[in-house]
Amino acid sequence: MRLSELAEAIGVDFSGEECEISGLGTLKGAKRNELSFLDNPKYIKDLATTEAAAVLVSPKYADAVPEGTAALVDEEPYLKLALASAFFAPVPMKRSGAKPLIGEGSEIAENVAFGKDVVVGRGVTIMPGCYIGDEVRIDDDTLLYPNVTLYNRTIIGKRCIIHAGTVIGSDGYGFAHTKEGKHVKLHQLGNVVIEDDVEIGANCAIDRGTLDATVIKEGAKLDNLVHVAHNCEIGEHSLITGQVGLSGSTKLGRNVVMGGQSGTAGHLEIGPFATIAARGGVTKSIEGGKVYAGFPLMEHKRWLKLNALLSRLLEKKK
């Protein structure tokens, strides 16, 4: 869309150099023909170096928009981004495109459903009931158990194992909120990238990125019933056990271990080789190489001492 037309459609004033907008992008990743936004002050450092053609921004950050990038100033930039995303949302199913390209030695069950422009590598096994969406890529020697669903543009690496009932690439939980309390869908335009030698348990849900990719890196292992929200990054060889929930834009370093029913708030980082004990709640970024427990989260030894102290206090009251 022409930038002036897009601005008018979402109700934002625009004056400046006209250009074509072909998509949306993050401040860090946007190209010269894309629209970006700034809503969270955590990302103000990325505004100075963005290559986006235009940025939706609140008045207090308007002066920080770099030269050569148009500032679309509005009190509710995230809401306006949500409105803009509807114009770039992909169609649920492509009407035209190539038939699946299946590599040598792959075994595909009869009732597997394929979208358009799918590429499957060599030695891949796809069991009954799976759905492989448009433009999906599955690399060599990967195994999909029954009823796995891969949404459009999902990328799966080599030697991965994905267990029954898992959904990869579903929409992230992204909504902008109006002043009247209505919820406007932010269409999820990214995808999911799963690198080599990853194993994902049964009935997991891994959301596609809002604008970029949700990434699970090489060698990571996910247990059953894990939820990975949009824009998360799980580091190499990390271990994520049952019923863990990662909020949006959580970044795990390599070899992070998360115990059962532990979880994170969004937009934080967990350092490499950190361990979160069962039911631990991570609410802010933490350094790696340590063991944590509890809610609010603290180092595991301190958590043990706290519980011992509470136990002695209760004994004294008897």
Score class of each variant (00 low, 15 high):
residue 34 E to H: 02
residue 308 A to W: 06
residue 116 K to F: 06
residue 182 K to E: 14
residue 68 G to I: 14
residue 30 A to C: 12
residue 303 W to F: 13
residue 200 I to Q: 03
residue 276 I to E: 01
residue 195 E to T: 06
residue 167 V to M: 11
residue 191 N to V: 06
residue 48 A to M: 05
residue 10 I to P: 02
residue 192 V to H: 08
residue 150 L to V: 06
residue 180 E to V: 06
residue 305 K to L: 11
residue 152 N to H: 11
residue 128 P to L: 07
residue 218 E to A: 11
residue 194 I to P: 02
residue 136 V to A: 06
residue 243 Q to I: 05
residue 312 R to Y: 08
residue 234 I to S: 01
residue 318 K to A: 13
residue 120 V to Y: 03
residue 151 Y to A: 00
residue 88 F to Y: 14
residue 83 L to R: 13
residue 121 G to Q: 01
residue 186 L to A: 07
residue 9 A to W: 09
residue 185 K to P: 07
residue 224 N to C: 01
residue 190 G to W: 00
residue 143 L to M: 13
residue 297 L to A: 07
residue 138 I to Y: 00
residue 136 V to C: 08
residue 199 E to F: 01
residue 138 I to A: 01
residue 24 L to P: 00
residue 79 L to E: 05
residue 136 V to P: 04
residue 21 I to V: 11
residue 46 D to H: 15
residue 258 M to P: 04
residue 34 E to G: 01
residue 23 G to W: 01
residue 195 E to K: 13
residue 309 L to D: 12
residue 268 L to G: 03
residue 318 K to Q: 11
residue 140 D to R: 15
residue 89 A to Y: 06
residue 113 A to L: 14
residue 295 F to H: 13
residue 315 E to N: 08
residue 186 L to W: 02
residue 203 N to H: 14
residue 29 G to P: 04
residue 108 I to M: 07
residue 124 V to K: 01
residue 32 R to A: 12
residue 115 G to H: 04
residue 226 V to N: 00
residue 130 C to P: 03
residue 85 S to D: 06
residue 107 E to T: 11
residue 266 G to Y: 02
residue 178 T to W: 07
residue 234 I to M: 07
residue 5 E to T: 10
residue 10 I to M: 01
residue 115 G to Q: 05
residue 154 T to E: 08
residue 127 M to G: 00
residue 232 C to S: 12
residue 255 N to A: 14
residue 177 H to C: 15
residue 181 G to P: 02
residue 78 Y to C: 03
residue 123 G to R: 03
residue 100 P to V: 00
residue 241 T to W: 00
residue 305 K to N: 10
residue 215 V to K: 07
residue 121 G to C: 07
residue 69 T to P: 02
residue 181 G to H: 06
residue 129 G to V: 09
residue 199 E to Q: 14
residue 273 F to R: 10
residue 239 L to R: 08
residue 188 Q to N: 15
residue 131 Y to T: 08
residue 31 K to T: 13
residue 185 K to H: 11
residue 300 H to P: 04
residue 53 A to F: 01
residue 10 I to D: 00
residue 57 V to R: 05
residue 212 D to K: 05
residue 264 T to W: 00
residue 221 K to D: 13
residue 292 Y to K: 09
residue 74 D to Q: 05
residue 163 H to D: 10
residue 41 P to M: 03
residue 15 S to Q: 12
residue 301 K to N: 09
residue 110 E to S: 12
residue 33 N to S: 11
residue 80 K to M: 10
residue 276 I to D: 04
residue 204 C to W: 03
residue 49 T to K: 14
residue 224 N to A: 02
residue 207 D to Q: 08
residue 119 V to F: 05
residue 181 G to L: 04
residue 104 E to R: 14
